[in-house]
Every structure is written in C-alpha cells, then in structure tokens.
Design a protein around this nucleic acid. Structure first.
Lengths: 139, 139
DNA sequence: ATCAATAATAGTAACTGTTACTATTATAAG
DNA sequence: CTTATAATAGTAACAGTTACTATTATTGAT
C-alpha cells in the first residue's frame, strides 16, 4: 500500500512542478511533466516528479486522473469533467456541461462515507473520427 | 497501441473465465481471476486470462474497471455504479442509486462522439472507517 | 549568521501489472 | 479425416511507477 506523506518543507522542485502544471490546460502524464520541468530544473529526477505530483494531488492542489493507461494530472482542481478518446487516449476538459448534470450529492452509499465522485466520458475524438477506425484499440 | 482481436473460435479457457466471472458479485483483478479459473483448468496461463478478459470486455460481455491501480472486471454488464475505498482500494457495487442520477445522455461533447460515461464514487469503506486512518494512502 | 536535525533530493535499482513472442495444441470448415 | 489457422502455455520483455541510498537543502534554534 502506497503511503503519501504531507510536505513539511518547501522545495524549488515541488513549487516548479505546481507552477508549470497550473499554466497548462492539457492533462500531462508524469513523464510529460518531467520533460516540462527539466527546462527550468535540468537535474530534477523523474522520481521527484512522481513523488511531488502524488503529494500535490493528495493535498488537493491538483487532480490526478487514473482512468487511462498512465495517470494524468490536471492543474485545475475545481469541479469539471473529462472526455477520453477510446482510440488515441487523448484527454480533454468538458466545460460546457450543465451544472446540474449530477442531480444530487451523496454522503453515504453502500456503507461507504463518500468523499468524491469521478466521472469520465468515453468517446471518439475528432481526429480519430476522421480516420474511421473499426477496431477497438483501448478498453 | 493495444490491438484487441474479436474471438473467432470458442475455447474452453474463455468460456470458463466468463462463467466463473458471472458467478461473482466481487470485482476481481486479472490475477484473482487466474487463481479462480486454475481450480477448473490448472494449466491455464496468466497471459490467456489477460487476453480473454480484454476480448470479453471489448465485446461487452463483461465490464473492465480501470479506476484503481490494477484493472478489475465485472461480470455484470448492465448499467450500475461503483464505490472504491481510498484507503484499501476495495470496490463495491452501488445498486440503490436513483435511476435518474445522471440527468441526460449526450452524444456529442467537446467535439467527441460520446460512446459512454464512467462514474466511480470515491469513499471510505466501513472497515477503514473504524481504523480512523488520517493518512492518505491512495489517490 | 551558524549550526544541527532531518526533509527532500538525484540517481538508480527494483517491482507490478500487463503485453508480446514462439513453439505447440485445439477448433472448425471443407 | 484433413487442413488452415485461432488460441494456447510458458516465458521474456516492457511501461509505469515506487523504493532505496547517499547527498543536498530547508528550517528552527542558538
């Protein structure tokens, strides 16, 4: 079982990761964040990126999306939804969704104390749509 | 990019995997299914279990849940929801949810042709609740 | 400002879940 | 029954992530 610690000291690495992610509207993977942050901190290690992304997500500074093959991170931690393409795996924000898409909030379900609700739409992106693919490439 | 083929012939292995999964109300991982099926077919290989679970999911016979660390499979392919414990990772069905939880269906969102919508509730299960854990162990 | 305690790091090795490969076996059409 | 080839068992390889260890950086106390 993974054990995520709360940060106790500031570090330039964690701050840079947060700053760079907040600038983006895309949903980069840890490796993609690593490449972005290396432009500012060329010696940062991939492990540091992974560790800090987990810490930031655990503290609610960012959001971790675990729907696809590899985790993706979102600097926008306000409530919104995502679509992922079943062919290419690309993830996009959904902003224009009616506020009352989900009718109600729950605090208990099946004996669980509910702390959140993850919604991901699954679809076919415009680019893959053009290609007219008839094989399933991702489930 | 993974390429899932449609089955063209019957096999005892695939049929057994489907039968055994349909018997369960739990949401086993591929490795857990492997252990279950080995009681009937002791020589089945883990790769065969993975391959067939993917095929069955791609054909809609079963449902693949990719929210947690490892994929979990559900023999119940009718529409229902799940809760996962943020501490222990346990997944459970939600049956008592109002039918109209999601107000509307979409066929287009953000340029994507929508083919589905995945919802996962995140909470703390009764067992973990008792333990009064104050560290985040899974995000 | 300097020091001491230790959190956080870089670099790397190891691990976990999954997929690919290959020789062999089983299925189903003719 | 034969034959083409789908599907298999067994194993190696792979991707994403996590753990380990020696070193560096942060922060609170002097």
């Amino acid at each position: 079982m993974k054990n995520i610690k709360r940060p106790q000291r500031r570090s330039k690495q964690r701050q840079t990761i947060l700053d760079e992610l907040k600038k983006l509207t895309t949903h980069p993977t840890a490796v993609e964040m690593y490449e972005i942050v290396r432009e500012t901190l060329p010696n940062i290690s991939l492990g540091t990126v992974y560790r800090n992304l987990e810490m930031l997500a655990a503290n609610g500074n960012i959001v971790k999306l675990k729907f696809g093959t590899s985790a993706r991170f979102d600097g926008n931690s306000s409530r919104h939804y995502h679509v992922r393409c079943i062919h290419c795996g690309e993830v996009n924000d959904i902003d224009e969704l009616p506020e009352d898409f989900v009718k109600q909030d729950f605090d208990k379900l099946g004996g669980y104390k509910i702390v959140g609700c993850k919604v991901e739409f699954v679809g076919i992106c415009p680019t893959c749509s053009e290609k007219n693919i008839n094989e399933v490439s991702q489930v």
